[in-house]
Structures are given as C-alpha cells and as structure tokens.
Amino acid sequence: MNTRLNDPFVIGGHTLQSRFFLGTGRFPSPAVLQQALEASGTQVITFAVRRINLDDLADDNVLQHVANRGFVYLPNTSGASNADEAVRIARLARSAGLGNWIKVEISAHHRTLLPDPIETLRATERLVKEQFIVLPYTSDDPVLCHRLEEAGAAAVMPGGAPIGTGLGILNPYNLGLIVEEARVPIIVDAGIGSAQDVVQAMELGADGILANTPIAKAQDPVFMALAMKLAVEAGRLSRRAGRIPKKRYASASSELKGRLFEFAGTEGEG
C-alpha cells in the first residue's frame, strides 16, 4: 500500500511526494551526505547561500555532490541578521540560478540563533512581493505564524527548539495551535533530536519536517536519515488514522464475558 499517493503535499505549486526536507551542512563527508539524501527520500534540500560558489554553481563544494538528482533547492539566508541582508542574499541566490525558493532565516543572537520575528516578517513581505516562494523559519508563536501566512509565505516553518540543540518539540501546545489555524503547510524546522520528535511533530499535525544537524551529526547519518523518513510517514499516518482518547483506567481489548475460561482472558489480546 503506497499511502503517500493519496496524500499530496503542495508547496508553491510543486507537488512533492516526500514531506521530509534535508539540510546539507555538517556532514562528515560528501559520500555520507549522498547516502543520507538517498536514504531520506527527500526532494527538497536546503543550504546556506553564503557558503555557495555563486559564480559557478556546478563547481560548488557541496552542490557538485547533489547536482542532477532532481532536488528542489531551498537556499537559505542563514547568517543574515536583518531583513535587508536576507533580501540581498535571496536576490543573489536567484540571480545565480538557484531558483526562486528561499528559506528566510534571520538570527539576531549568536548563541541561541533564535529567529528575529520582526525582521523575518519584514523579509517575508518583501520577498513575496519580489515573486519568491518564501518559506520563513520562525519561532513557534501562533500569531506570528499566522502573520507570516498572511504575508504570503508558501509554507511556515516554526522551530521546535533552537537550531542544532536536539531538544525536540518544546512547546507542543503552540505547535498544535499553529497547525489548527494554518492554511499553508507547516514544516517543523530546527530542534529535532531523533525520530521520536519527528513522529510527535507529525502527529501534532505538522505537514512536513526539515532537519539537518540530527542527521549529519548522528553517529550513523544514513541510518538516522532512514529512521526519520519512516518517522515522517509513521507520524503522518498516525495523525490521519486518529489516535484513541487517553483514559485513566484499563479497558480490555476483548470482553471477558462469554469466554470459555474466565481467568485466561485477563491478559487481553491487544
């Protein structure tokens, strides 16, 4: 059964089969990066524009290892500390031939790297006007996420926790509210530590996951890429299947009444 066939994921007019986006940074070697990308089944990859050889994309250190594999490029503005810088980076990326998707990433603090909400909103508004497909990385504030959607973001990408921390979904309540209100895809970006965080985010109703550090810095990045791919699918299916309500006391999965041997039924069959 291919469940993904009946579950299209559309961003900026692109229909994607995979709900899992990967960052290409920090991998121990380009061979491990290639194998992890393969294992993840991802179709969208993100990378920092500042690290790219914009004069010659085919020659770039990282892109040379991922070219001709049909990936949609989601260049990001990481390192930008205000909207002006982010807009300049986005224009550089587009004119270099990296396409018109852009992940807005604006950090104001060098230690937490938390996104600057005001500059992120400003950059999103401006880049939407310039016909970019804008995916802002933002804090998990439901009102801000809604404002980014109104500003024309193609998808909104709240963080579960600060970048690279692996702390997981620190505020599942907020993520639940964000998902409830959203009319564009919600992609959890940043903070994921392992596959269980991925499942949690997807069960809460996220439409997709973006991860880099928890894969690249796992002891085995290829296994973790596969684990998270499966977690995205498992979490999505679990969300759609609908979980049972939580109850305070046990309820046996088969009735005791009518059994031949009354006491043999106590273990249940669930």
């Binding site: 524009v49 500042r50 390192g79 980076i89 060098h110 790297l113």
Partner: peptide
Amino acid sequence: FHEADLLPMHTRLA
C-alpha cells in the same frame, strides 16, 4: 566574503 559570514564567525569565536 558575505556579511552573513560574520554571525557564524562570532558564534564560533564565542
């Protein structure tokens, strides 16, 4: 070479 290189350098330096 980019203004955006500076923030990660400060992070590193810290």
